[in-house]
Design a protein around this nucleic acid. Structure first.
Lengths: 234, 234
DNA sequence: TCCGATCTCGAACAGTGTTCGTTGGCGAAC
DNA sequence: GTTCGCCAACGAACACTGTTCGAGATCGGA
């Protein structure tokens, strides 16, 4: 499909691009991750991935049902990079916190890929493994079963959401005018109707993404720990 | 030069009076909300909105800079429908919980419109009013200023995220095959490697959206209350 | 009455995901 | 060793998307 060999007469029928052995589901996933890592989800089009593999978009459909399925595969692949702990009952709280923190950080390494997971129940081998071990840790800590079942969804969702939010802001913050615009806007608000906003204007923009994520995560994990039944050893 | 409304970001396109064809910013917003309410964000294209107003897509650009700005306007309009409480120091915790619950419910009435807010810092008159009163309530409760500043972002984000998640699932659940697929999948997992998932399989799908939202919200608000300094009256 | 500003909007452009129909190469059967 | 059938590969096309351009329509003020 690409440039011809100029040493061949151009009236010859073009030489076959050599059966693309490199094309396979794994290769498509790999190329997709490369694109999303370097250019973000917005750049992730079927044509862009195909170009990465020196072929056309239609060729991808032999290995992947559609873009939706490809995104599922990509996301699960990323989840597979999250390091899983060896569960230790004495340190369950520390371990779930670490696990969710690592999840956040891993997703963030692939731009805003978590955007896809919003509105989708994550399935796939790696996602299932992750939620299995998450629930194992919580149960170990004495968190009641019904709370465990909901927590993996609710807190998992929080982690995913923050990954999108932080990826987007990280990107937007590259424009120096970005923050200046908001500062001017906040400063211009009528002080009588927005006294608290004015009073906290300075604090509203403090802290980086990791700190804010940790703040929310601690609220959630703290709440779960409070639900834990005493048996957890004391 | 007429004076601008300082609660509207000055990078928004200035409002223009209604002209010939009943086309105006307000009309565009109204039509956009109707589309998103009835058909969801996926159906919300410039052409679709224009059709609602019996005109072409290009006509909208006289009243709105681009789709991005239109979405900001739509979202702020929805936020404007959230009922705001009269702050009462004695009931601050109940009131913030109610406020966030109402926010969730209001967004849910407009399908997955909250999808837009993810990755965007919500601005606009109504969004600012909402965060002002949220922070007022938290401060009243004795939550330290730095926690107030972060909470409005972190918990607000949680509420937004759940609105998207719940809207999407509500939509997907219309297909009866949806849940059956997941149940079969869970049931088919190798029991030796997924013991907890198997044990909790029943509980994983219990509870509706409201209950799950409330579960997460209570964890967060409980955590904030725990951060509150004693002065709040004892 | 005329002018200039402003709104309206069809057409076009570059991009998207996906499908169709053809091609050509490989593995298996003869 | 030849032939045959299957299917990955892929160019072209379709129906969408947001947005821009430029010509026409219509208004307020002079």
């Amino acid at each position: 499909m690409t440039d011809r060999d100029p040493t061949e007469p151009d009236w010859w029928t073009p030489r076959k691009p050599m059966r693309r052995h490199g094309l396979s589901r794994a290769a498509v996933i790999e190329a997709g991750l490369r694109v999303v890592r370097e250019e973000g989800m917005d750049a992730l089009s079927m044509r862009r991935i195909a170009a990465e593999l020196n072929t056309g978009a239609a060729s991808l459909y032999a290995h992947v049902a559609n873009k939706e399925e490809l995104l599922e595969l990509l996301f699960d692949e990323v989840v597979g990079e999250i390091p899983l702990p060896e569960p230790d009952p004495a340190r369950w709280r520390e371990q779930v916190t670490q696990l969710w923190t690592d999840s956040h950080a891993t997703m963030l390494r692939y731009g805003d890929i978590a955007r896809f997971a919003i509105g989708h129940i994550p399935v796939g081998p790696n996602s299932m493994r992750l939620s299995e071990i998450t629930m194992t840790l919580l149960r170990m800590g004495g968190v009641p079963d019904h709370a465990v079942a909901w927590a993996v969804d609710v807190v998992g969702g929080f982690v995913t959401f923050r990954a999108v939010e932080d990826a987007t802001r990280e990107d937007a913050a590259k424009d120096p005018a970005f923050y200046r615009r908001y500062q001017r806007y906040f400063a211009g608000l009528p002080a009588d109707r927005f006294p608290v906003t004015a009073a906290l204007a300075g604090q509203l923009t403090t802290g980086d993404d990791k700190q804010r994520f940790r703040f929310g995560l601690d609220l959630l994990v703290g709440g779960l720990a409070a639900l834990a039944e005493p048996p957890e050893h004391g």
